[in-house]
Design a protein around this nucleic acid. Structure first.
Ligand code: FES
Ligand code: FES
Lengths: 144, 144
DNA sequence: TCAATAAAGGATAATTTTGTCCTATTTATT
DNA sequence: AATAAATAGGACAAAATTATCCTTTATTGA
């Protein structure tokens, strides 16, 4: 479904959001530890998220990653997926035709588009804040 | 969503079903041509589908791949996906946790499971026959 | 100013997925 | 029996993804 990079990216962003709720800035090392991901690879992904304005980064001592409260509402999971995996999952053909086109649909088109749109809507309507609060009250987990 | 191998596999199986409706047995070369896929790679995938009883293969001159009419109804797209990509898409965690577990869910679990189940049901309720007939009447396409 | 800390970024390695090529096996036809 | 056509399968190659390591840059605080 999503690439590994994207999975780590979402988990990382949720963790950053969670800690930012407490005003804590977090380092790559802490993030990788808390979401159980490879450190250096996670660093790359955080760079990407930072460049695409999903999270904010601060260099130097006391630096790290953070997200302000209003951004947690506006940043949707769809933004993260788009930043890392591109728009294939939103517009691509389920059977791999060069493009998904209702005028010349693949055999699975009609049924696939329904699912794809549900997924798209779900991701577009889920904010980092929403996911972070579930974590905060201990209902959900970022590693096992 | 699906791997390339799986995309080719579904397209190939639909084409085999379509031709089998006319009693025609088809070769790897014809299949690859008609679904616009790399020949040798497609051959591997057809082997896999043959081993997992999704389609039937016949060696030698006049040989090729075929599917009998009753199998077109019983073989669902979910079978093909499972044979090639395994069950990750049916049971895996959307955020990449080692396993999806409602007792210790990831932040996206509840929303993700809904989509995943819709996808699963869709694939389980779509037969090769259904997809082949859409092709037959010229409503859908296997390449662009 | 200096040392320490943390992200940014470049180079490279490992792994997985995708793809190719060649030989072996099976089988229909002559 | 010989030939040719077709899948099966093994070995290998290319490309993409995942992952690591090292150097550079920015910033804090002593
Ligand atoms: S053409 Fe295949 S999903 Fe739209
Ligand atoms: S635990 Fe992540 S989808 Fe179920």
């Amino acid at each position: 479904m999503f690439s590994k990079a994207c999975e780590y990216g979402i988990r990382a962003a949720v963790y950053v959001a969670l800690q930012s709720l407490d005003g804590r800035r977090v380092s790559v090392n802490e993030i990788a530890e808390e979401i159980d991901s490879p450190i250096a690879f996670t660093a790359k992904i955080l760079q990407q998220l930072s460049r695409s304005k999903v999270i904010h980064s601060v260099k130097g001592p006391t630096g790290g990653f953070e997200l302000d409260r209003t951004e947690m509402d506006t940043v949707k999971i769809s933004t993260i997926v788009h930043a890392i995996d591109g728009d294939d999952i939103y517009v691509g053909c389920g059977l791999g035709l060069k493009e998904c086109n209702a005028q010349k649909p693949c055999p699975l088109h009609d049924k696939f588009v329904d699912i794809r749109n549900d997924l798209k809507n779900m991701l577009e309507n889920t904010s980092l804040y929403e996911l972070a609060t579930g974590l905060e009250v201990g209902l959900t987990y970022l590693k096992r």
